[in-house]
Amino acid sequence: GKMTGIVKWFNADKGFAFITPDDGSKDVFVHFSAIQNDGYKSLDEGQKVSFTIESGAKGPAAGNVTSL
């Protein structure tokens, strides 16, 4: 299901971020390909987002990341 959280930090050079979920679970890795914005895919620290949890090769990662 959809979860919500806050972007903890975003590394534009490497194209990934971490989200701190609102439910208090541990921070979730985000690859820029999961960001659903049109055009430039970036996130801002402190931004509120919704996302799903996908199981990636290196463990859980956020999918369908959308700005709220």
Score class of each variant (00 low, 15 high):
residue 2 K to W: 13
residue 4 T to N: 05
residue 35 I to L: 10
residue 11 N to H: 06
residue 19 I to K: 00
residue 48 K to C: 13
residue 7 V to A: 00
residue 12 A to K: 12
residue 11 N to G: 04
residue 52 T to P: 04
residue 44 D to P: 06
residue 10 F to M: 12
residue 32 F to V: 09
residue 31 H to Q: 14
residue 17 A to P: 00
residue 66 T to I: 11
residue 10 F to Y: 13
residue 65 V to Y: 01
residue 59 G to H: 11
residue 22 D to R: 01
residue 68 L to S: 15
residue 5 G to N: 00
residue 16 F to L: 15
residue 34 A to N: 13
residue 6 I to C: 08
residue 9 W to Y: 13
residue 44 D to H: 11
residue 45 E to S: 09
residue 43 L to Q: 01
residue 10 F to E: 01
residue 41 K to H: 13
residue 17 A to S: 01
residue 60 P to D: 14
residue 27 D to Y: 03
residue 61 A to W: 11
residue 13 D to M: 06
residue 27 D to V: 06
residue 19 I to F: 00
residue 42 S to F: 11
residue 15 G to N: 08
residue 24 G to Q: 04
residue 27 D to P: 07
residue 33 S to F: 06
residue 5 G to L: 01
residue 9 W to D: 02
residue 3 M to K: 07
residue 10 F to I: 15
residue 21 P to D: 01
residue 38 D to N: 07
residue 14 K to T: 05
residue 13 D to P: 04
residue 36 Q to W: 09
residue 52 T to K: 07
residue 44 D to K: 13
residue 19 I to D: 00
residue 57 A to E: 15
residue 64 N to Y: 05
residue 31 H to V: 10
residue 53 I to T: 08
residue 3 M to Y: 08
residue 12 A to T: 08
residue 6 I to K: 06
residue 37 N to D: 12
residue 46 G to M: 03
residue 31 H to P: 15
residue 60 P to F: 02
residue 12 A to M: 10
residue 67 S to D: 14
residue 2 K to P: 11
residue 64 N to V: 12
residue 22 D to C: 13
residue 15 G to H: 12
residue 1 G to D: 12
residue 1 G to I: 07
residue 62 A to I: 11
residue 65 V to S: 09
residue 39 G to P: 11
residue 51 F to R: 00
residue 56 G to K: 03
residue 25 S to V: 02
residue 22 D to I: 06
residue 47 Q to E: 07
residue 11 N to Q: 05
residue 40 Y to L: 13
residue 52 T to V: 11
residue 63 G to P: 12
residue 40 Y to K: 07
residue 24 G to C: 10
residue 17 A to T: 01
residue 41 K to P: 11
residue 68 L to A: 14
residue 15 G to I: 02
residue 60 P to A: 04
residue 66 T to Q: 11
residue 40 Y to I: 10
residue 18 F to D: 01
residue 27 D to W: 05
residue 40 Y to Q: 11
residue 61 A to L: 13
residue 26 K to V: 10
residue 64 N to W: 07
residue 12 A to L: 11
residue 28 V to N: 00
residue 19 I to A: 00
residue 67 S to C: 15
residue 42 S to A: 11
residue 15 G to Q: 13
residue 9 W to S: 07
residue 42 S to I: 10
residue 56 G to R: 02
residue 19 I to Y: 00
residue 10 F to N: 02
residue 26 K to D: 09
residue 33 S to T: 06
residue 47 Q to P: 01
residue 66 T to P: 15
residue 22 D to G: 03
residue 20 T to M: 08
residue 54 E to A: 02
residue 18 F to V: 13
residue 13 D to Q: 09
residue 25 S to Y: 03
residue 37 N to M: 11
residue 21 P to N: 02
residue 59 G to M: 06
residue 11 N to Y: 05
residue 51 F to S: 00
residue 67 S to P: 09
residue 20 T to E: 08
residue 51 F to I: 04
residue 43 L to A: 02
residue 48 K to H: 13
residue 4 T to V: 05
residue 20 T to F: 03
residue 2 K to D: 08
residue 5 G to D: 01
residue 40 Y to V: 09
residue 33 S to A: 10
residue 15 G to D: 04
residue 17 A to Q: 01
residue 14 K to P: 01
residue 41 K to N: 12
residue 63 G to V: 13
residue 13 D to L: 10
residue 34 A to D: 14
residue 44 D to S: 13
residue 58 K to V: 15
residue 3 M to R: 05
residue 58 K to N: 15
residue 31 H to G: 07
residue 44 D to E: 11
residue 62 A to M: 08
residue 31 H to L: 14
residue 67 S to V: 12
residue 65 V to I: 10
residue 52 T to E: 13
residue 21 P to Q: 02
residue 27 D to A: 08
residue 45 E to V: 12
residue 53 I to A: 06
residue 11 N to V: 05
residue 55 S to P: 11
